[in-house]
Design a protein around this nucleic acid. Structure first.
Lengths: 192, 192
DNA sequence: CTTTTATTGGACCGATCGTTAAAGAATGTG
DNA sequence: CACATTCTTTAACGATCGGTCCAATAAAAG
């Protein structure tokens, strides 16, 4: 019953995610969002509730997307340790390109909205996902003898998550070109 | 000639720095600032120009303050490597306390205003300062035989700056308690 | 068909944004 | 003293903020 939606809520959410990702929460207005989604205000409020609700849904969607892409990247048939190495390198490489300015939506949210408990729960969920997937991959590396017996995959995974956050920050600054290659070199030294 | 200022511009700038640090740029209004500084709007605009100008001055001040405090911390008479280790530990420890929510003004600015070239120049200046001071200290450690000959102080310094940015990000999230100790452990393993 | 329900686009709301203007108060100069 | 200059205070500006309301529209239900 009732009139059918003329837009794809899923695509709209992804577009909103992109805009929040690029501009941040405070710097993105409902007018920005409506124009970028190609929707009237009524449609946006009707489908998503309001700015904050839309933002939270966008972050949640980001966490889910990230989990999928990370899972795919780490589930290689080859060397587990190489997969982790590749991930670190890709983070730095992405940061060096134009996408570096966007950074990571989790990083951005952690920094911009530290007092928003709901937003931080989503950030927590995203970082934990990274921790879990990295830990599993490092355990696989250890089982295959790529990582020495005395290394703790959990400790290493948490370290890597923190470092990746740093890479996303530095990737937004003018020092990125100078810093990130060296950062990756040192990090890879820890993955041997 | 003319009426004398009734407030200390230096103290006011520091108060503004605190507020921007805690709340971010967009989330801090001129009204917030006026109340927090105990000044009328006219005084603030007369002394600092406007919101953006005040913010940029605050960031510059932060860079200067950081340089002084970092220099003092690394200029120990004892072990150079211990000084660096203590710095990393202190970063994590600070992040675990209430101050962790504020994070680092450079980190916050890098993330929130990546498109503001002037702000990013100040961030660049701050990160370069960290790089230089850390490099010098690591060179001292190398000269004193605390660091093996094949280690590059510059590479290591840049890695540490990136990692410290990551610590400031993670320190703003609910995972801080679980992640930061392990992060520090791994980082210290690289300083041996 | 009519009725009901839901979506749409845009006018509109009060609140707040950063900024400016102007009048009064305090200081230095002649 | 008068005068020029600077700072303080406050009212007010236009613009924009997030959010609401509503008439028009479209589709499902009877």
């Amino acid at each position: 019953m009732g009139r059918t939606k003329e837009f794809d809520p899923d695509a709209a959410l992804r577009a909103a995610m992109d805009l929040f990702w690029r501009q941040g929460y405070e710097a993105t207005s409902m007018q920005d969002l409506c124009e970028h989604l190609g929707l009237g205000r009524g449609s946006v409020y009707g489908a998503f509730g309001g700015k904050r609700e839309l933002f939270l849904m966008a972050v949640r969607r980001y966490v889910e997307d990230s989990r999928e892409s990370l899972l795919a990247r780490l589930s290689t048939s080859g060397s587990a340790l190489d997969a982790v190495r590749g991930l670190v390198r890709d983070y730095a490489e992405t940061a060096l390109q134009e996408a570096g300015r966007k950074g990571c939506l989790l990083t951005n949210t952690a920094v911009e909205l530290p007092a928003d408990e709901e937003a931080q729960r989503h950030v927590e969920s995203g970082l934990e996902t990274m921790e879990v997937l990295l830990t599993a991959t490092l355990m696989r590396a250890k089982a295959e003898g790529e990582l020495s017996e005395d290394r703790d995959p959990v400790v290493l995974a948490r370290f890597l998550v923190t470092l990746l956050q740093g890479i996303r920050v530095v990737g937004k600054t003018p020092v990125r070109q100078r810093f990130l290659d060296d950062t990756v070199d040192q990090a890879l030294a820890l993955l041997a």
